[in-house]
Computed example of a mutant assay.
Amino acid sequence: MIDSKKLIYLPGWAKVFIVAAFGLCLLAAVYVSLAFVGVPDHSDWILLSLSLAQLAATALVLSLILIFGEREANLTFLISKTHNLLLKNLPKTLGQIKDSHGQELTVSVSAINNIFGANYRLENSNIRTKMWIGFNVDRIIVAYYLKTNEPVDTLKDIFKYTFGGAESVGYKINYEPATIKGTGEQVLSIWCTWPGMQNHNDISNELLNSPDKKLFIIQDIAMMTQSFIRTAERNAVDIFTDADPAPL
């Protein structure tokens, strides 16, 4: 596979095998060439083995460059990958969410806004909600809004399993009451950030360039959102606001 940082993305054993194979071919060709030096009527063998040695040497150099060579990720390419993740990958995965009745939700997504994020609206006949998700290379932000007058501590207790589980994989959760400018709507913003620190190890490196890490985080966001929706249904919490969630 081609990767934006590594030109060839292969498992370690495959890299070693390819380099070793070309290296052995080179050594064998050189050995044959030297073995026939001075032997009458074997000049054709010497020419053939030298040609093979040249080909093996060229292949070895190219394989080393392609397999182990690195280049800087193109900025435009990274932006394109971010937009693709936000506008295509995430909506598709969020569309697999089911409410507490087992029904899937329709997902609509906005254009990119607030620099590196997008708004999502999830709804069916039972429930509807909005969220904002931002991807800043290796930092992820998920924002939910609640329309409620309940104390923050009460809501923390209601959603303790939803966001407690998120914290166990590295999320930092913040709760902030706010009044929406212009409408006066009272909301509670639940702000989830994923710096990817777990047991003092940074697990968010190369997020945009790693298919398995991207799959993990978008599926994890979907699972957290499904838990958020089902918990709200069970506890009759209004999770649909007039305002679109966004960084405050």
Rank of each mutant, 00 (worst) to 15 (best):
I141R: 14
A143D: 04
P91M: 10
V152A: 10
V152C: 10
L248H: 04
V107D: 02
L146H: 04
T82A: 11
W191D: 03
E206Y: 12
P151C: 01
T225E: 00
F116V: 04
Y31A: 11
A14L: 08
A73W: 11
G170P: 01
Q186P: 01
F135A: 06
H83R: 15
T148K: 08
I203N: 14
L87Q: 13
P11S: 05
I18M: 04
A20S: 07
N149Q: 03
L55Y: 10
I18Q: 03
A246S: 04
I203V: 15
I65V: 15
S33F: 03
L47H: 14
A111H: 09
E185K: 06
I229D: 01
G102S: 05
L34M: 07
Q96I: 00
S189K: 11
F159R: 12
I173W: 13
I218N: 03
V16Q: 02
I229F: 03
M131F: 02
Y31V: 06
V32H: 06
N174P: 02
L75M: 10
V142H: 04
M197W: 14
D212P: 01
A29P: 03
I173G: 12
D242Q: 13
A21D: 05
F228Q: 01
S51Y: 13
I218W: 05
F22N: 12
G170W: 12
G165K: 14
S204D: 08
P247D: 01
S51V: 06
S110Y: 07
V137P: 12
H200M: 08
L62I: 13
T129R: 11
G170E: 09
M223A: 07
P151Q: 01
N174I: 12
T231M: 13
C192I: 08
L52N: 08
K181R: 09
K98G: 00
D244W: 13
N201G: 04
V37W: 15
I141K: 13
R128E: 05
D157R: 10
T162N: 14
I217C: 05
F159V: 08
F228S: 03
R121P: 00
T93V: 14
V30E: 11
S100P: 03
A29V: 00
N119D: 07
S100A: 12
M223G: 00
